[in-house]
């Protein structure tokens, strides 16, 4: 199980690297799709069918929007010769990544091996959840009964994002 997921995540890393370095923006967007669709397979292997259903549709709509934006404007990557400022940002990125990697090494001591973690947080959500909520699907039970506040908050964030898009696109810009 862990091997299969590792292979898929490896492909996702390759797709991400190509998406970052591609000259053509359209192929960068499509290569970004590799990451999203690979995530769908990972969710299926990790026994999360709810997430797989949502992710496959969301990834398709995201790709439609991104491809529409890229085809509507320029496909050229703004590529210039590496100058001193470019080296400075690359060095900054490597320093930040090294710091984060150090914290991963420190914290990996307390990580459980894959599949052997105990359900410390949510044992009470699983025990007797069907009697408490009446819902056979435990994810729906957690989403709307035990964690109703979170769902309401996320729905509010969704509305805010929609209002933001409408505000940005409906104002008439100065030429």
């Amino acid at each position: 199980m862990e091997l299969a997921i590792s292979v898929i995540v490896g492909f996702m890393i390759l797709g991400a690297l190509y998406a970052i370095h591609a000259r053509d923006l359209l192929s960068a967007v499509i290569a970004g799709g590799i990451v999203g669709y690979g995530l769908v397979i990972c969710f299926l292997l990790l026994k999360a069918p709810d997430l797989a259903i949502v992710q496959i549709v969301v990834e398709t709509i995201t790709l439609i929007i991104m491809v529409a934006v890229v085809l509507d404007s320029s496909r050229e990557e703004a590529f210039t010769k590496p100058d001193s400022k470019g080296y400075v940002t690359a060095a900054t990125a490597i320093v930040i990544m090294a710091v984060l990697f150090y914290f991963l090494v420190v914290s990996s001591a307390s990580l459980d091996r894959l599949g052997e973690g105990e359900l410390r947080m949510s044992q009470s959500y699983i025990e007797g959840a069907v009697e408490k909520t009446g819902s056979v699907n435990l994810v729906t039970g957690v989403l709307f009964d035990f964690r109703g506040y979170d769902t309401l908050g996320e729905a509010t964030v969704l509305i805010t994002a929609v209002l933001g898009v409408l505000t940005i696109l409906r104002i008439k810009g100065k030429k």
């Binding site: 992710q55 969301v58 995201t62 991104m66 934006v69 959500y125 957690v142 940005i168």
Partner: peptide
């Protein structure tokens, strides 16, 4: 399988779509 992280991620995926669309709106503007 633990249902709590799945419930969190389920909402976060939809929010991710909305924020990505908002980012693309800013970019095209």
């Amino acid at each position: 399988v633990d249902p709590l992280p799945q419930a969190m991620v389920l909402t976060a995926i939809v929010i991710g779509l909305a924020t990505t669309a908002m980012l693309m709106a800013v970019i095209i503007r």
